[in-house]
């Protein structure tokens, strides 16, 4: 009921007023409103159901995310991160790394469209994996970088 449009509510109210006139007791109103809701088109209700679904995350099939990890260099960092990605069925498309003194940075461009996991879960898992190597891990949709750095 909460997902009815304003127009629909107005229609229902109008029908109730027309039918009941002076006989508007609580029971009568409930009955008429119930009938009016029943008469509303099926597809509209379906559309409303879709609307009440949880908010869609912005990462959709075919979209790519950028994983950046920083920390001190240790054995197994790259294997750890790519291993975690492989476990989640995420495809590494590109990889860069940079070492400044002992400070280590890796950047992975990852296609997560084959993974059965949700973006949030993938992000959580990567942050957790990184923490095991004392790495700070940031996972972001690729689009934000394109937006900021390309005209």
């Amino acid at each position: 009921m909460s997902s009815l449009t304003e127009d629909q509510i107005r229609q229902i109210a109008k029908q109730a007023v027309e039918q009941l006139g002076d006989h508007a007791t609580i029971e009568n109103i409930e009955k008429v409103v119930h009938e009016a809701v029943q008469r509303l088109d099926g597809p509209v209700t379906k559309q409303n159901e879709q609307k009440s679904n949880p908010l869609p995350h912005q990462v959709k099939k075919g979209d790519r995310v950028i994983v950046t990890a920083f920390g001190t260099n240790k054995i197994g960092i790259l294997a750890g991160m790519t291993g975690a990605l492989a476990q989640m069925n995420c495809n590494v498309i590109d990889l860069s790394q940079k070492i400044l003194q002992e400070f280590f940075t890796i950047m992975l461009l990852v296609d997560i469209s084959q993974s059965s996991l949700h973006f949030d879960k993938i992000k959580e898992k990567l942050i957790e994996t990184g923490a095991g190597f004392d790495l700070k891990v940031i996972v972001q949709h690729e689009q934000i970088f394109k937006t900021m750095h390309r005209v």
Binding site: I66, T68, K98, L109, F145, M148
Partner: peptide, 17 residues
């Protein structure tokens, strides 16, 4: 067009630092 490492690092520096 591929995003370069330097651009990613700049963005992260902007938000994190």
């Amino acid at each position: 067009m591929q995003i370069e490492l330097a651009e990613i690092l700049e963005t992260i520096r902007m938000t994190e630092v």
